[in-house]
């Protein structure tokens, strides 16, 4: 009898979250705002997790905490880097900055564009920071802008003059131009037209197939239904005195 060793292998973990909690200390109100408590899950290579829950349940806050725009109150978020495992909840700022440049992307609907910088330069910038020559970075940036439906007349213009939808397309092109290992998606399709939403979903599908792990909140979850492997529902924290989220 021939026994063949299986060639399939278990997907490698990218992120393991344990007991993660977040609360905001509002000094001027002398109050604490509870966002989420004791969250735990695992995210593997090529896996797509959809976060669901009512408004205020902490979905976007969880993404921002994983990206370390917010500081967690407790818990761990073990991220498997190419060099080893690092706890995003406690890692030094400078390490987080390195991971953001190399491996972890945050895709949001909001563009924080520097004034007087052309749309194509904004999109090309992550590539340039990674060492890609200017001409090549610009060429790729233009491809991405085309994919998201930004007209060529707008490429050399300043995004601060664009409509919200066009700004968002520039933002998406910039966020997705560099390959990442982990993508945090915070309502990236909100206010996008249908063609741009389709272009985004196509790009996310390519990234997922290439092994990129993703976790996100979506304004139109049906857009990404074909990509979702699992759903995690966040519940609004209820405090005994009836004031949701807030404790004195």
């Amino acid at each position: 009898m021939n026994i063949h060793a299986s060639t399939s292998r278990a997907p490698a973990p990218v992120l393991r979250v344990e007991g993660l909690s977040k609360q905001f200390e509002m000094h001027h109100l002398q109050r604490t705002l509870f966002a989420f408590d004791n969250i735990g899950f695992r995210l593997d290579e090529g896996e797509f997790i959809l976060l669901t829950g009512e408004n205020g349940a902490g979905k976007s806050t969880l993404l921002r905490t994983l990206y370390r725009s917010y500081l967690p109150r407790a818990g761990h978020a073990y991220y498997h880097t190419r060099e080893g495992v690092i706890d995003l909840a406690a890692a030094a700022d400078v390490d987080i900055a390195v991971l953001r440049r190399r491996e972890i992307g945050f895709v949001t609907q909001f563009l924080n564009a520097r004034p007087r910088v052309a749309a194509e330069e904004i999109v090309a910038e992550p590539l340039r920071l990674a060492g890609t020559p200017h001409a090549e970075a610009l060429e790729q940036a233009r491809r991405w802008l085309t994919a998201f439906g930004v007209k060529s007349q707008l490429w050399p213009a300043y995004p601060s003059t664009f409509s919200g939808g066009e700004q968002q397309k520039v933002n998406l092109a910039r966020a997705l131009i560099l390959p990442q290992r982990l993508l945090l998606l915070d309502e990236p399709t909100a206010s996008l037209d249908r063609d741009a939403r389709r272009a985004l979903v196509e790009r996310l599908a390519e990234l997922k197939a290439s092994g990129v792990a993703m976790i996100g909140v979506f304004h139109h979850p049906e857009d990404v239904a074909s990509l979702v492997d699992r759903e995690i529902r966040l519940e609004t924290i209820r405090i005994a005195d009836g004031a949701d989220d807030v404790a004195e």
């Binding site: 967690p72 109150r73 890692a91 400078v94 390490d95 991971l99």
Partner: peptide, 14 residues
């Protein structure tokens, strides 16, 4: 300063 409950680690990746 509000304690985050977590002490940040010295840099490792840099």
């Amino acid at each position: 300063a509000a304690p985050t409950g977590l002490e940040r680690q010295p840099p490792r990746l840099m």
